[in-house]
Amino acid sequence: MAFLDDLAFILAFLTAIACGLMGGLFFAFSNFVMQALGRIHPEAGIAAMQSINQVVLNRAFLCLFMGTTAACVLLVLYALSNWEVPGTFFLLLGSLLYLAGNFVVTLACNVPRNNALARLDAGSPDAVAPWREYVETWSRWNHVRTATALAASAMLIVGLCLMLTLD
């Protein structure tokens, strides 16, 4: 493998792990966190999710989320400029899945809902209907993030396996 191909391999390996981590995080929310928050009293659910949305904006999460996004952009550029390298189609596909299904969906669908939730008064009876809507729509988009992060991880792994045929 050429030096650039070696770097791309290492980047794709780390990105596949990061996509898997993001998929696992989103899976936990889809599988039980949002369901549990939706079952408790709306005031408690709203307050808990408002707190989660504040706490999640920490260095570790933002580094993982934004780092994976940046790595996927680099892999897209690598794949497009090194199309002849085995596995680059899968690196491109996996990276685009993550970028569209995680970065774009997060910014366009989940974050605006989080911002609207932050403005709710958890103790207000008027907050119940928006909360129910939030749980349903936020969760739906989170399912998309879960599936695309895990699919991205799988596609990157396929690309890595194909890149091993370079030797």
Rank of each mutant, 00 (worst) to 15 (best):
S81P: 04
L75P: 03
L91F: 12
L97C: 10
W83A: 13
W83G: 10
C72H: 01
N102F: 15
L75D: 04
E84W: 13
A100P: 07
V105F: 02
P86I: 05
F90M: 11
V73H: 00
G94Q: 06
T68M: 11
L93V: 06
F90E: 10
P86V: 04
L96V: 15
V104R: 00
A70F: 14
C63W: 09
A100W: 14
N82M: 12
M66G: 14
L91Q: 00
L80W: 14
V73Q: 03
V105L: 03
A70K: 08
G67C: 09
L74C: 15
L99T: 11
A100S: 14
N82K: 14
L74R: 06
A71R: 01
M66T: 14
L93Q: 04
V85F: 04
A79C: 09
C63H: 08
L97R: 00
Y78Q: 02
T88C: 05
L64D: 02
Y98L: 11
L77E: 09
G67L: 11
A100T: 15
V104Q: 08
V85L: 08
C63M: 14
G87V: 11
G67T: 04
V76K: 08
G87P: 05
W83P: 00
A79D: 05
L77M: 14
F89W: 12
A70N: 08
L77C: 13
L92W: 07
P86Q: 03
N82E: 06
L74H: 07
E84S: 15
L99Q: 08
G94N: 04
L75G: 02
L77N: 11
V76T: 07
L64P: 00
L64M: 11
N102W: 10
T106M: 13
A79T: 06
C63Q: 11
T106N: 12
L75R: 03
N82C: 11
F90L: 09
L91N: 00
L64S: 01
L96Q: 08
V85M: 06
L74D: 07
F65E: 05
V73D: 06
F65L: 13
Y98F: 15
V85P: 01
F103S: 11
L93W: 05
V73S: 02
V104E: 09
V85H: 04
